[in-house]
């Protein structure tokens, strides 16, 4: 069919055009901008080469390293927490218990709550004086916390908040678990193995592609956290939750240093690419694909 190419391009043209207009074009423009001193309120814009980048890495801009460090800390805390907790919840949901569908709905539900509303709810739950969590802790005679309001606890508190929205990851794990053929487990039953050997020798190896997928998606998402920073903390207290994208937004839109902010965006892109690449590279040694190849 010669006409295939014509029709193929015709049907996909909105998407291809969209990619060129809203992704590729802005990407190139962003790279160019990142090599200028563009500021909305400045008359003249000059080409400055890699000055923005060298300024970022020279240490002159202390907040850059600070926001980078904070974001790394957040990613390191959040990614394992999301993967482990959602995997455990998925395992539980995969048990043949009554009311599975209801449990699944309850666990998924928070993930559709708008970020602003969820931030509001957590601000109230974690309110140091009047919040539910601290009053429960007091009641249990456990130490309370200042949560979002103290430098040491603000990042773990944001991680905690985002764990409420873990439902999407859980459901993807569930899909992975349901794809494991039942016969494999029966083989272990025959051999007299218990739940631990099932988990160790079948479930975990079989679900590694899903772990891989979820890990990559969670890393990409965690590096870009913005809403929580903007709504919950505005980067505070004392810049201790100055997340990278929040700092980028502040530089580009509040301080209108758009050239410099574009350079920050590219640094973030390279960092995300780097970590995705690392996970991909290591995946050969731990991700198990049925039939050897990815479909």
């Amino acid at each position: 069919m010669r006409k295939g190419l014509f029709y193929g391009l015709l049907f996909t043209s909105p998407a291809i055009l969209g990619f060129i207009i809203f992704t590729l074009g802005p990407m190139i423009a962003s790279l160019v901008l990142s090599m200028t001193d563009y500021n909305v309120f400045k008359e003249q814009t000059a080409f400055v080469g890699i000055d923005n980048y060298s300024k970022l890495f020279s240490g002159e801009d202390e907040l850059f390293y600070k926001s980078l460090g904070i974001t790394f800390y957040f990613v390191i805390l959040r990614v394992p927490a999301v993967i482990i907790i959602s995997f455990v919840i998925a395992l539980l949901l995969n048990l043949n218990v009554r009311g599975r569908a209801i449990f699944r709905t309850i666990i998924y539900l928070p993930s559709i709550v708008p970020a602003v509303a969820s931030a509001m709810i957590w601000m109230w739950l974690l309110n140091p004086d009047l919040g539910l969590v601290n009053s429960m802790l007091k009641w249990l005679h456990l130490p309370t916390s200042n949560w979002f309001y103290s430098e040491g606890s603000v990042i773990p508190s944001v991680v905690l908040t985002t764990l409420w929205g873990i439902g999407g990851t859980v459901v993807i794990f569930l899909a992975g678990l349901s794809g494991i053929p039942k016969q494999y487990y029966e083989a272990i039953d025959v051999d007299g193995g218990g739940w631990y050997s099932k988990l160790r020798h079948i479930t975990i190896p079989m679900v590694t592609p899903t772990i891989f997928f979820n890990t990559i998606m969670t890393i990409i998402g965690s590096f870009q956290v913005f809403n929580e920073a903007y709504i919950l903390t505005q980067g505070g207290p004392n810049n201790q939750s100055l997340f990278y994208v929040f700092y980028l937004w502040r530089t580009g839109f509040r301080d209108t240093e758009m050239g410099y902010a574009s350079a920050m965006a590219w640094v973030l892109f390279i960092i995300i690419l780097f970590f995705t690449f690392i996970v991909f590279k290591t995946s050969k040694s731990w991700v198990h694909y049925e039939g050897g190849e990815r479909t």
Binding site: A15, F19, F22, P26, I220, F253, F269, I272, T276
Partner: peptide, 21 residues
Amino acid sequence: GILMSSMMLPAAVTLIPSFLG
């Protein structure tokens, strides 16, 4: 595949030029 790869692109990269556009 090329279109899919854009899923890895942080929104922050296209944000400023799109805004200016």
